[in-house]
Simulated assay, not measured.
Amino acid sequence: MSATIVYHRARPLMEAELGDELVTLDVDAGHCYGFNAVATSVWRLLEQPCSAATIQRALMEEYDVAPDQCGQELGALIADLTARGLIRAEATLVPDGPTV
C-alpha cells in the first residue's frame, strides 16, 4: 500500500451556472466566488475525492493544454482553493501495482 493525496470539497456551496462559468456562495462565511470554465470543471470533479493526477488527466482530455502547463496551473488552482478553505487534502492508502 502507498499513500496518495486526494482532494475534496470542504463544504457545500450554493451554485449558479452562467454559461460555462460558475458563481458560488459560501453562505456561512458570506463570500462569493466566480469560477472560470477550467475552475468549474475542477469543482465538478471534486464532487468526489480525487487526486491531482486524476484531475489533470480529465482536464487534458477536455482542453487542449500541454501537460506541464496543465500541471502548473492546476497546482496553483488547488493551492488557491485550499487557501480559501473551499477544498481539503487528505492522504489515502491505495494498493500498490502488481509485482512480477
Rank of each mutant, 00 (worst) to 15 (best):
residue 39 A to P: 04
residue 7 Y to T: 00
residue 96 D to S: 07
residue 46 L to S: 00
residue 11 R to H: 11
residue 46 L to R: 02
residue 54 T to D: 14
residue 44 R to I: 13
residue 26 D to I: 00
residue 98 P to R: 10
residue 83 A to N: 05
residue 35 F to V: 05
residue 94 V to I: 15
residue 44 R to W: 07
residue 57 R to G: 15
residue 72 Q to M: 10
residue 17 E to K: 14
residue 30 G to Y: 06
residue 34 G to E: 13
residue 49 P to M: 04
residue 3 A to M: 14
residue 78 I to F: 05
residue 58 A to N: 08
residue 4 T to M: 08
residue 80 D to A: 09
residue 48 Q to R: 15
residue 57 R to W: 06
residue 94 V to D: 02
residue 67 P to T: 03
residue 40 T to W: 03
residue 2 S to A: 10
residue 32 C to Q: 12
residue 52 A to K: 05
residue 87 I to R: 00
residue 64 D to P: 05
residue 85 G to C: 01
residue 87 I to D: 01
residue 80 D to T: 10
residue 3 A to R: 11
residue 3 A to C: 06
residue 44 R to V: 13
residue 43 W to S: 00
residue 84 R to C: 11
residue 49 P to F: 02
residue 68 D to N: 11
residue 97 G to Q: 10
residue 24 T to I: 02
residue 63 Y to I: 03
residue 78 I to H: 02
residue 38 V to G: 02
residue 11 R to W: 09
residue 53 A to W: 12
residue 25 L to S: 09
residue 91 A to H: 07
residue 46 L to D: 00
residue 49 P to D: 02
residue 97 G to D: 15
residue 28 D to Q: 15
residue 93 L to R: 08
residue 82 T to Y: 04
residue 7 Y to A: 01
residue 63 Y to L: 04
residue 2 S to T: 10
residue 97 G to Y: 08
residue 87 I to L: 01
residue 85 G to P: 00
residue 78 I to T: 01
residue 83 A to L: 11
residue 44 R to E: 07
residue 95 P to E: 10
residue 55 I to S: 01
residue 79 A to F: 14
residue 86 L to Y: 00
